[in-house]
Amino acid sequence: MASPVIQTDGVKLSYRSGSVVTPVLRGIDLEVSQGECVFLVGPSGSGKTTLLSVLGCVLTADEGRVSILGQDLTGLRTQELVRFRREQIGFVFQRFHLFTALRAWENVRVAFDLLGIAGCKGKQKSLELLDMVGLADRAYHRISQLSMGQRQRVALARALAGDPHLILADEPTAALDGETGQSAMRILKDLCGRLNKTVVVVTHDNRIFSMADRTLTLVDGRIDQGTMSQSSNHAGGNKASELVGSGAA
C-alpha cells in the first residue's frame, strides 16, 4: 500500500473568544492515500471546514500530529507552512474567490506568480490548465462574463497550478445548480484521477456523494468510526446523507 498523503493522529483544535473556548476538533485520526478522493460530510458545525483548514496548513492544530506528504507540520514556522501550502496544496473554494479584476487566464497565472513562474511561461501554463478544464475558449474572458460552472472550473485550474499533490475543495458545488455542480465535480474527480492527485472534498451535496472513493462523516469534531474504512461507499454516503439532511444548513 502506498504511504498515506495525509495522516493525522489525535488532532484537536478549539476556537477561543475571550474566555470562551469552543472545541471544534476533538481528536481526528485520519489517513488518506495517494490518488484517493475522500469526501468529508457531516452536519454544520461538525468541524469539516476546520479540519480542511488544518489539512491545508491554514489553521494549526492545538494538539495532535498532522503529516502531509510525509512532512510533519507540527512545529513548522508560519513561513514554512505558507511555502508548503503554496507548493503542495491546491484549494477550490465554495465561492470560488476568483479575482474579478483579472481575466480567467490571469486568475490562474496568479498561482504561478506565487510559485515564481512568471511571464510567458506562466501564461502558457495557465492557458494549458484552462484547456484541461475545457475553458480554452473562455481564457480571455473576464470573470463576470463566465457562468458559475465556468468560474468553478477556473478555480479548479488555479488549484492545479504548480502541480500540487493535494487538492482541498470546500463545498465545491454549493454555489452551483444540481447539474452544473455534478458536472464540475465530475471534472474535478476525473482530472485529479488522471493526474493522480489526492482530493479531499468537504460537501453537503448528497447528489455527488457517489463520486467519492471514501466518505468520512464528522460528528461533533470526531470522525464517525462507522464511516472510517468504507470505500466506494454507498453505505457511508447514505449515512452521511441522513446526517446532512438532518442538520445541514
Binding site: Q79, V82, R85, F91, H97, A111, L114
Partner: peptide, 12 residues
C-alpha cells in the same frame, strides 16, 4: 477577501 485568498493559496 482577495488578499485572504492570496494568503490561502500561498502568498507570503
Amino acid at each position: 477577501t482577495d488578499y485572504a485568498t492570496l494568503k490561502a493559496i500561498g502568498a507570503d
